[in-house]
Design a binder for these strands. Structure first.
Length: 496
RNA sequence: GCCGGUGUAGCUUAAUGGUAAAGCAGAGCCCUCAUAAAGCUCGGAAGGAGGUUCAAUUCCUCCCAUCGGCACCA
């Protein structure tokens, strides 16, 4: 444990998004959470690789392309771009964006993993019998039927048998269970871990791993079996490996893969927990690869207490929000108001309360009062040992400790809350010291140094959450060469 | 149906086998450097019934409510 502690690598991924629709606020929640974690680790000095991307294959995307009058490939290019664009819109710091339709980067990796599983003897062919709905052009389950008919297409599904490849997932139930129990594969939060352990207790079933190519050609071909296309598991989950060079035979890719794998953290939604905590580990074990170290599971966002749905028409377009309120305001809402690891709610009322209360009245006003008080003084000499009061140090120390703890446990809303405790602490400090009434310029400077130091600590803690705002604060309250220069600028946030 | 979670102030959350904490909202006070911001004070809470214990919001049982997983949608 206690060997060279200099720079740890930290490989963090989000789920790759399915591109049959536009990004909504739920997609953004995940990216923003992962971004905050990635930035946090960079600030700690870790060498961070932050990966995201898009999942582009499958029948749904083929249908969505048809509806749009495009080829699957054209559709994928356009739709994927909507997700890629989130980077600039939300100021996300990912290093790489992988697309499952990428034949150069992704396909060799998926095919290599397939071969490994086959080599182990965990892939076998079996007849799959299911209810096929012509309207869906896909298999449906009993649950989709009303009076024996497909609810959407009002047709009785046909019973169809087809030969598919299957993966012997059942074989790995015990091993996965023990890795999770021992925290070798850590699942956060604990309720999600218990959920998956309960599932494992019942045992895993083998899963269908391919589709006949005649039905699904838009996907990765199964190696040595052109009649079949890979089903989502071996295709999509493999993105975590393909992005870092697994399956490529050049020297650089091999070094890269060795360096980054295993992933330190997969950030995913609760709907795909089972895939990441059961199927994915099963595949990795079969291929003799290391398991990811941890999986963080976030919840869903409701809108005004209701499930978000196109039918209700309450889907929140995150891009609209940013255009109206700015990226940091939206980031703040998602990170502060939504409990990370649980479901949360979005409402315009709460959004406004957060924006006005926390950002404008709290943070923005604090910076404004400090800079207004100190601007005319010019650069103020600053010496940490002499100038920073014990109360200031203690205030920051206490909050810093809680912040760290919450970041480590991925309770981002709590960590964010600690920053605002510090804002409040600073406001109180200024009220107590009444710098506006001080006539002694030495005393005034000392108070402003302490206030500035508190605001500087706020800016530091804030950086993973609201990077742009953090930078603005640092430009207005600028510590440089043992001086602090206060310069009143634009309001950080205007009240709504 | 099976399995699991949750139920704390008007709302959102926190800690804890021994006085239940905070933010927002509400009421009042106060300051005036600041974005009519900030600060202070106040009121207000453990779903229900049992049990274990000197002591239960915390542990156990049952009931009620609610959410989720099992059924390939962030």
């Amino acid at each position: 444990m206690a060997n060279s502690e200099k720079s740890n690598k930290f490989y963090i991924t989000t789920a790759i998004d399915y591109i049959n629709g536009k990004p909504h606020i739920g997609h953004v929640l995940e990216k923003v959470q992962a971004d905050a974690l990635a930035r946090y680790h960079r600030l700690k000095g870790d060498e961070v690789l932050f990966l995201t991307g898009t999942d582009e294959h499958g029948a749904k995307n083929v249908r969505a392309a048809e509806q749009a009058g495009k080829t699957p490939s054209e559709f994928a290019d356009e739709s994927s771009a909507n997700f890629r664009n989130l980077k600039n819109i939300f100021n996300l710091s990912w290093n790489d964006f992988i697309r499952t339709s990428d034949k150069v980067r992704h396909w060799p990796s998926a095919q290599k993993l397939w071969r490994e599983l086959k080599e182990t003897g965990d892939l076998y062919k079996k007849n799959y019998r299911g209810l096929y709905c012509v309207g869906h052009e896909a298999f449906v389950t009993e649950k989709d039927l009303v009076d024996g008919k497909c609810e959407i297409h009002q047709k009785e599904p046909e019973v169809i048998e087809e030969e598919n490849w299957f993966f012997r997932l059942s074989k790995y139930t015990k091993e996965i269970e023990s890795k999770i129990k021992s925290k070798e594969l850590r699942i956060i939060p604990e309720t999600r871990q218990n959920e998956i352990l309960a599932l494992l207790k019942e045992g895993l079933e083998d899963i269908s791993f391919s589709r006949p190519a005649k039905d699904l050609s838009w996907g990765v071909p199964v190696p040595d079996d052109p009649e079949h296309t890979m089903y989502v598991w071996c295709d999509a989950l493999t993105n975590y490996l393909s992005a870092i060079g697994y399956g490529q035979d050049d020297q650089l890719s091999m070094i890269n893969y060795k360096h980054w794998w295993p992933a330190d953290l997969h950030v995913i939604g609760k709907d795909i927990l089972r895939f990441h905590a059961a199927i994915w580990p099963g595949m990795l074990l079969s291929a003799g690869l290391l398991l990811p170290k941890s999986i963080f599971v976030h919840g869903f966002i409701t809108v005004e207490g209701q499930k978000m749905s196109k039918t209700i028409g309450n889907v929140i377009d995150p891009v609209d929000l940013v255009n109206k309120y700015g990226a940091d305001s939206v980031r703040h809402y998602l990170l502060r108001e939504i409990p990370s690891g649980e479901d949360g709610d979005f409402s315009y009322k709460k959004f406004e309360e957060r924006h006005n209360g926390d950002l404008a009245n709290g943070l923005g006003n604090l910076v404004a009062r400090i800079t207004a008080l100190g601007e005319k003084l010019g650069p103020i000499d600053f010496n940490f040992a002499n100038d920073i009061e014990l109360a200031t140090k203690n205030g920051i120390g206490r909050i810093f400790e809680d912040y760290e703890k919450n970041m480590q446990e991925i309770r981002l809303h709590e960590a964010s809350g600690k920053i605002w405790e510090l804002v409040s602490f600073a406001d109180k400090y200024i009220n107590d010291k009444k710098p506006w009434s001080l006539t002694d310029s030495i005393e005034l400077k000392k108070v402003l140094i302490n206030a500035s130091y508190l605001a500087g600590a706020v800016a530091n803690l804030l950086e993973p959450f609201l990077p742009e705002t953090s930078g603005k604060i640092k430009r207005q309250i600028n510590f440089v060469d043992s001086k602090v220069i206060l310069k009143k600028g634009e309001h950080l946030f205007s009240r709504l």
